[in-house]
């Protein structure tokens, strides 16, 4: 894309999202920090603020809790809605500061009401929504999130999200058919930044990067079962459904070319 073709994109951006300058695009509030193992999953290396993120698939709760861990250790308050009864020891294992985590045992049909109250003062909300909100409810929720600059992580697909992390494959190791115990789980996750492999939970309970030796073993096993391997390697493919994001991505490429 050359510099000249950026003009209509910029016009479209300022009309649709109110972003009028490049500075407004790039000097947004910094994202919440996340564990170094998880940060490649996010476009800006951390949990974006003022936006809705979805984490779906098997082990999504572990992934969500691991994502909030670094922020709670920086005194950011986090609440969980509709998570059932989480086990405290695993929350602590994933690195969450227990002094800054609250779990709401409210009925599933009240999640939107509870979330809208919590948005007022909490920094991060982790929610397993009991029902899908209507379009107008969703718009109000997103506006509130944007205004308070807080992060909402949904464990189910929810439209209006800016980043989607989907865990596509899990591979537990250590059980050894009756001769061991579960040690770690190798997951493959797809996000806007491509496909990533890491251990969640790793041997110590926290996320860990894949040791060099296991990579090839996994590559063999992964090829045999999963046709999804080649999906999501191109960052543009997943964002196509959201025109606004694809234009921003294009614009970023333009700006980085110019710079």
């Amino acid at each position: 894309m050359d510099v000249m073709s950026a003009a209509p994109v910029i016009e479209q951006l300022s009309r649709e999202t109110g972003i009028s300058t490049a500075a407004a695009l790039f000097d947004k509030i910094p994202p919440h920090p996340v564990d170094p193992v998880l940060s490649p999953l996010f476009r800006r290396g951390g949990l974006p603020r003022g936006e809705l993120v979805t984490v779906t698939g098997e082990l999504s709760l572990s992934c969500g809790l691991a994502t909030i861990a670094a922020a709670t250790r920086e005194q950011k308050w986090c609440a969980g809605i509709g998570l059932g009864e989480p086990s405290v020891s695993s929350i602590a294992d994933l690195g969450v500061d227990l002094d800054h985590f609250v779990n709401l045992a409210t009925p599933g049909e009240d999640w939107l009401r509870v979330a809208s109250i919590l948005i007022e003062s909490f920094d991060i909300i982790l929610v397993d929504p009991g029902f899908a909100p209507s379009a107008s409810e969703r718009a109000r929720l997103l506006a509130k999130i944007r205004e308070r600059r807080m992060s909402l992580i949904s464990l189910r697909p929810l439209s209006g999200s800016t980043e989607q992390i989907e865990i596509t494959d899990t591979r537990w190791s250590g059980a050894e058919h009756g001769h061991g115990r579960l040690q770690s789980c190798l997951v493959r996750a797809r996000s806007q930044t491509g496909t990533h492999r890491f251990l969640l939970p790793g041997p110590s309970g926290t996320p860990a990067s894949v040791p060099a030796g296991t990579l090839e073993v996994v590559a063999d096993g992964g090829a045999s079962i999963a046709p999804t391997t080649d999906l999501g390697t191109d960052p543009a493919t997943d964002t196509d459904d959201d025109p606004r994001w694809s234009t921003i991505t294009q614009l970023r490429q333009v700006i980085s070319h110019v710079g």
Partner: peptide, 19 residues
């Protein structure tokens, strides 16, 4: 915020973790 939620859903709806 949490007291407001306790008022709406009862005190047992807002739980803090411990081991």
């Amino acid at each position: 915020t949490l007291e407001r939620l306790q008022g709406l859903f009862g005190p047992d709806a807002v739980l803090v973790p411990g081991i």
